[in-house]
Design a protein around this nucleic acid. Structure first.
Length: 436
RNA sequence: GGAGAGGUGGCUGAGUGGUCGAUAGCGCCGGUUUGCUAAACCGGUAAGGGGGCCUAAACCUCCUUCACGGGUUCGAAUCCCGUCCUCUCCGCCA
């Protein structure tokens, strides 16, 4: 959410920001309603104050008749206050509905425009591979090596679900181990989070459960939903808290499953593991002071690069344009891995594997997470940031497709070998075995 | 799932209808004393929002908040209903 006062004081700037982000919000209507709300709020406060004053004098009334007279006066004021309050509540509800639609403000350096305005700001260390044979896509590779069963996934849970098998299981676990260990070394506190969260936590992070276009699976007869990312649970972790600024930034790393309905996404780039309803993700999350968030955003992006450099996956980093930022992000960097099996006729293409966002105070305002400097008066809203360390399903695509060999085997990235127990995935599970 | 107990300021803990935003202790901040430290003593110490105030600080003032939401009442930490959470015991389960 944006701050109401900020919107009111900067209506033109907010309007322009909405335009750049492709969000149609009626700023003028918001301003009108908010102006009326403020007047009504003053009225309610005034009536309430007067009613309180009268109530305080009743205990000290001299006699019964004066007591009764004051009670009547008090009753009259309370009723007037209640009536005004009702109008205020109605205005408030209407305003919040509009307020929720405002996207966050945008970083001044974020490129303005739609997808085509994306700016490449960095390349990974590993070069895009050149194959002297026709590379396969990850579905072919995985099926020939007996690593993946999409048909069984569909039988059990429908399209978009899958079974991982054999070394793919080891790879998934290895990616988790590798990423978590790496982040622990960088001062991140590892956490395994709930895979479900309350709907108001979802909404605080910026997800809309039960909407028509929702990405979220809801649990029937409850106010719980399956999380789409551990960003939701990690962000919700400190709801309502006031943090000591001396302890910031807080660096967390969450392990969770992620569930996404992918409503309306059928038909485009849905082959294999690229767009699935469930996957495992190692997520970074940070709470910072307002001054720290830009620096922390660079840190998160840097860590994502280190991870994929270590895995020798070729990638580029994109500074996401305003039109693609979504609601909560102030700025977003995406890592796009080279995926040889993607694109027209298997020519290869870039596919998003991680993403890191600085959400400034957009999430903390709704979640009410503040920070306070010792000895200073008042609190400020913290800034929240998130970044993908490893989204396992997409990392698997990049690893399988980039590391494939002419004989159809897959070379295991060096940092994963201790966990997978072999250097190469061949035709048969256990073919190369673990060394004794 | 069943039974019981409970949720009050940074913490402990009193408070069962009227200047109670709340006794007391601990902690913390300031001061006195002291060669230094400690102790002792004195004073201060919840948060959020609005206004005085055109900008910052200080100060003053009002409102809201005793888990959350509703109800009763002129008035609720206190009475009633619902929800959530915590703890104990029993059952069940990985």
């Amino acid at each position: 959410m944006l701050d109401r006062k900020f919107i009111l004081d900067n209506a033109a700037i907010v309007q322009e920001n909405c335009r750049r982000r492709g969000a149609s919000v009626d700023v003028q209507k918001f301003v009108d309603l908010e102006t009326r709300r403020r007047a009504k709020d003053t009225e309610v406060q005034d009536l309430n104050r007067r009613a309180n004053e009268v109530s305080k004098t009743i205990g000290q009334a001299k006699d019964e008749s004066e007591r009764e007279a004051r009670k009547a006066e008090g009753r009259r004021l309370r009723e007037a206050k209640e009536a005004a309050q009702k109008e205020l509540d109605a205005l408030q509800a209407e305003i919040v509905e509009i307020q929720k639609l405002f996207p966050n403000m945008s970083h001044p350096q974020a490129p303005v425009g739609g997808e085509s305005a994306a700016v490449e700001i960095r390349r990974g260390r590993a070069p895009v591979p050149k194959f002297d044979f026709k590379p396969k896509d990850h579905v072919e590779l995985a099926q020939s090596l007996d690593l993946l069963d999409l048909e069984a996934g569909a039988r059990v849970a429908g399209h978009g679900f899958y079974f991982l098998k054999n070394e793919a299981v080891l790879l998934e676990l290895a990616l988790q181990q590798f990423a978590v260990n790496f982040l622990i070394g960088r001062g991140y506190t590892p956490m395994i989070t709930p895979d479900l969260a309350r709907n108001d936590v979802l909404a605080g992070i910026g997800f809309l459960p039960r909407g028509p276009e929702t990405q979220i699976y809801s649990i029937e007869n409850s106010d719980l939903s399956l999380i789409a990312t551990a960003e939701i649970t990690l962000g919700g972790l400190l709801t309502g808290q006031v943090l000591d600024e001396g302890q910031l930034p807080l660096r967390l790393c969450g392990v969770s499953h992620c569930y996404r309905t992918e409503a309306g996404a059928h038909g485009r780039a849905t082959r294999g593991l690229f767009r699935v309803h469930q996957f495992t993700k190692i997520e970074m999350f940070a709470f910072t002071t307002p001054e720290q968030s830009d620096g922390m955003h660079d840190e998160l992006c840097g860590l994502e690069c280190e991870i994929f450099d270590a895995l020798a996956v070729p990638y580029r980093v994109i500074d996401t344009p305003t039109g693609d930022l979504g609601g909560p992000a102030y700025r977003k960097f995406d890592l796009e891995a080279w995926m040889p099996g993607r694109g027209e006729g298997g020519a290869g293409d870039w596919g998003e594997i991680t993403s890191t966002s600085n959400c400034t105070d957009y999430q903390s305002r709704r979640l009410d997470i503040r920070c306070k400097k010792k000895g200073e008066k008042g609190t400020r809203l913290v800034h929240t940031l998130n970044g993908t360390a490893v989204a396992v399903s997409r990392a698997l695509i990049a690893i399988l497709e980039n590391n494939q060999q002419a004989d159809g085997s897959i070379v295991v990235p060096e940092p994963l070998r201790p966990f997978v127990g072999k250097e190469r995935i061949g035709k048969k599970f256990g073919e190369l075995g673990r060394s004794p």
